[in-house]
Simulated scan of single mutants.
Amino acid sequence: MRTSVTSMIIATATVVSTPAFAEDISYTVNDEAFTGYWAEAESPKGLVLIMHDWDGMTDYERERADMLAEMGYNAFALDMFGYKTPTETVDHRRAATGALYEDRERMRSLIKAGVDEALSRSDVSQMVVMGYCFGGAVALEMARSEMADTASGYATFHGGLTTPEGQTWQGDEPPVLVMHGGADSSIKMEDVATLATELEGAGTTYTIEVFSGAPHAFTVFGSDNYQERADVASWESFNRFLAAQLPG
């Protein structure tokens, strides 16, 4: 079932190349070990950075990176947790994400390390950053940071949307695409409205798409929350965003 769904999603976009190769990448940040995943396109039109969900850098991110490489983009799924961080249980995941939410300086340093690793491997530097759930919050953290202009755009799938205290949107950030499930019980529509108000007030270019009946984590293949209709539609929207921000 996963194979057929993935194939259908890929078929919604124009496939212009096949992956040159893909592999796990080990890198270090302040002597800590991290593992990302690199998928390279044959003739890349741009680079996509993938921010993982709260369960860490898994086969899900590898699969999405492969899909992007098949569409003609280099892709790097970075690691925000590191080798020693347990993610097996819900409590582990809450602890891992909570530690980074409480330490935004560390979050940004890990983002920068992943960006640097991706750029060191890519022969194209124009970049879009995407994130899933926790990774969506990480993508927006980068968009609000001094690294914002490193990328041409930011996209979140059922991602965390709250702007932390002490941070603001300035209005000169690259375009932001938010894809949200209308039935998301973890990230409420009130959060979507608050973000829209903040972005509108700042003058940031943004698009928000809400998919009716889609729960939280609606893109996660094989999960109880997976909704094929919303997954396919959001992937198509993301493809259009990539085409606009990474014209090749």
Rank of each mutant, 00 (worst) to 15 (best):
M71E: 13
M142C: 10
S4T: 15
R144Y: 13
S186W: 12
S122R: 01
A151R: 01
S234T: 05
A137V: 00
G166P: 08
Y132Q: 08
L195I: 05
E146Y: 09
G136W: 05
K112M: 01
S152K: 14
S223H: 06
T6A: 14
L242A: 04
F134P: 04
S120G: 11
E88Y: 08
D224V: 11
P247A: 09
S26Y: 12
Y73E: 10
G136T: 08
M1Q: 13
D24W: 12
P215Q: 05
A143M: 06
S4C: 14
H52L: 03
E173N: 04
R229T: 09
T85V: 10
V220C: 07
M80V: 08
K45E: 15
A196C: 10
Y154R: 02
Y226G: 03
V210T: 14
K112V: 07
D184F: 08
S234Q: 08
R94I: 15
T163Q: 13
G171K: 04
V15T: 12
E105W: 01
P19D: 06
S26H: 15
P164Y: 03
F241L: 02
S120P: 03
T150R: 10
A155N: 00
E236W: 05
T219H: 10
T205I: 02
A148S: 13
F241A: 02
W235D: 14
E102I: 04
D66C: 01
P175K: 01
E88F: 00
T28M: 10
A217D: 07
G171C: 11
M179I: 03
K45S: 14
E141V: 03
I50V: 13
V124C: 04
T12Q: 12
F241G: 05
R121T: 03
A244L: 09
T168D: 15
S4I: 01
T205L: 05
L242V: 05
D79S: 10
Y154L: 07
